[in-house]
Design a protein around this nucleic acid. Structure first.
Lengths: 225, 225
DNA sequence: CCAATATAAAAGTATTACTATTATAAAATG
DNA sequence: CATTTTATAATAGTAATACTTTTATATTGG
């Protein structure tokens, strides 16, 4: 089947790049290979010099696309959340029952993406790993308010607000829909990171445990009885 | 009243420093002023050169205490979690009822510390802000497994496991005590960060909202009925 | 008072995160 | 097809950072 997202472009916000990387071969190369290299080195040890050598291009050419590596990380993050948001909308669209709908959303947020190719040209599993490892650093810094004003996190925030709506539909009386929504989206990343690195703090080391934990929490929090 | 913690030393783990900063004036100066300066600049723009000038000492002298600024951040984090753990133990000690005890623990984790002086010589509010802003970066990097093996996060993990025990005491049947415990401790920091920087994702911008959200969650999750 | 140790001052090195310059190649336009 | 614009590559350069090393000067303890 033809890829949907590879033809539909996710608008990540123009403040994230200097030149649109989707507009050229080099740009697309920068994206796909930065996913590989950031995944391998981590954002701290990754730099544009190394990326240039890796794609047999030049450091200064990469600087014509992205201001610096943290903007590139924000761009990759926006891509990731864009894909998740897109899946959230189309894969829950047909579901009538609000509760089932919310649980489907939690599945999309927690479980490893299957059918990878139908959503993106890039390596989605590695992109997801980058988000688990590095996303927190894309907004934990002193420029966060500027970056936010420029709209660099707007897809992420919109995704959280979509989840807020789903939460409200399940229980309109619930008092903390935004807190819960943020808590889930960030919590998923954190649970995976803990599973991988702090094993003594993890109940069961499976993918399903992460989903089950959030299903249990949400069900009890929203449907008290 | 005489300070308790200023006489009782928190053992943060010897891999965090080269020379124990509590053992000299310069060391204590490094701690207290790094709290000020990291708070002001953020960990990325902070460095030992600037700290040296700030305390009218020398860059190379600071390197005799700490390997690098990230080890210092881990040291400050261990200090913070050490104070919280200490409070968790002594302030909940006398409480009989398991549920009340857990809620008191949540209060200690969420609310701004009062009676600051009785727990530490250092500026606890600024230290807490550093933790909210920077703690995530102290373990989100490629050396995390080494640092963990060296015991650099042991106080943090012990704190989480203490909370796990409290959770189990409230409901021994509950399936995800570790996930919940991590989720609370990290979630508190995250809720404050969101309140400060992503206002559109925050339900109410008060300190109590953070506590109330966690109280509501825990009560429903652990006492379903 | 001497010896050990801690700190300060200064200089040096390797790396990083860019910027600038020029050259060359590819693409667009007339 | 020729020309102008634009994209990329190669190279070099700069300022800052994250340390390390060396030497000098205090401070402290026996």
């Amino acid at each position: 089947m033809e890829s949907l997202l590879s033809s539909i472009k996710i608008n990540v916000g123009s403040h994230l790049y200097i030149k649109d990387p989707e507009s050229s071969d080099l740009g697309q190369n920068i994206i796909s290979h930065s996913i590989e290299l950031i995944n391998e080195l981590g954002i701290e040890k990754f730099n544009f010099n190394k990326l240039g050598k890796y794609i047999q291009s030049n450091e200064s050419s990469i600087y014509r696309y992205f201001e610096n590596k943290y903007k590139l990380l924000q761009y990759l993050s926006a891509m990731y959340w864009g894909i998740i948001e897109y899946r959230l909308v189309i894969e829950t669209n047909a579901i009538e029952d609000n509760n089932t709908k919310l649980l489907k959303a939690i599945k999309i947020l927690t479980l490893e993406p299957k059918n990878i190719d139908s959503y993106s040209d890039y390596n989605q599993l590695k992109l997801r790993d980058i988000i688990i490892d590095e996303f927190t650093k894309s907004y934990h810094h002193k420029d966060v308010d500027n970056d936010n004003d420029e709209g660099n996190f707007k897809i992420y925030k919109r995704l959280i607000l979509r989840l807020v709506e789903m939460i409200k539909n399940v229980n309109p009386e619930y008092k903390y829909p935004k807190a819960l929504s943020c808590h889930i989206v960030e919590g998923v990343l954190q649970q995976y990171y803990i599973q991988r690195h702090f094993k003594s703090l993890s109940d069961h080391k499976t993918e399903n445990q992460v989903y089950n934990f959030f299903e249990d929490t949400i069900t009890k929090v929203l449907n008290p009885k």
